[in-house]
């Protein structure tokens, strides 16, 4: 039995633009015991969640339906900073937390889509000097990014010389 996996999980989250004003973010989970999906529709550019749906494809259990009703509470909220707190708050009490996590994944994917679009015009990391200049400017433009991850923390070349004002470091 050694090196034979006892449990495996695949989770795939994708975003497509269905029309000029709508994005569809779809999270599909397939693991040893369950297959399920959660899907949201989001308006552009407000990133307002206008619909939520989901289902458990395996195993079929009626009890899951209640959880999907919980998820619909996020309809009308906007994806952006703080969305995690809102999703967690609105889905508090959900019986199957897995579906709340899938909803979060749908929201993350939408944010990452726009991050990707932005990065398309940035220098590649192997273009070291250009990349550092680009990201340094990004931190200067959005100082909230400072110290938000290892790459933007003191000691990183990207933030060398940057000292946020009015702040003890």
């Amino acid at each position: 039995m050694y090196n034979i996996l006892e449990f495996t999980r695949n989770r795939s989250t994708s975003v497509e633009q269905t029309d000029d004003k709508t994005l569809r973010s779809y999270c599909h989970l397939n693991d040893t015991i369950m297959e399920a999906y959660v899907e949201i529709a989001v308006t552009i550019p407000d990133l307002e969640i206008i619909s939520v749906q989901g289902d458990v494809l395996r195993p079929h259990k009626k009890e899951f339906k209640e959880s999907f009703e919980f998820l619909k509470r996020v309809i009308g909220t906007r994806i952006g900073p703080g969305i995690l707190k809102i999703v967690n708050g609105l889905t508090e009490g959900i019986r199957h937390k897995q579906f709340a996590f899938m909803l979060e994944e749908c929201c993350h994917a939408v944010i990452l889509l726009f991050t990707k679009e932005d990065l398309l015009s940035s220098p590649r990391p192997d273009d070291e000097e250009e990349s550092i200049i680009y990201h340094r400017q990004m931190v200067l433009d959005n100082i909230r990014l400072y110290n938000r991850c290892a790459a933007f923390a003191p000691g990183s070349r990207i933030v060398e010389g940057i000292i946020p004002k009015d702040k003890d470091i």
Binding site: R9, N10, T13, V15, E16
Partner: peptide
Amino acid sequence: MLKFMRNKIVGIEVKDSNTVL
């Protein structure tokens, strides 16, 4: 056409009666 996709795969290997990888 998809504009973004994230795939995650996790495999659980039983190392002993207390531990998984």
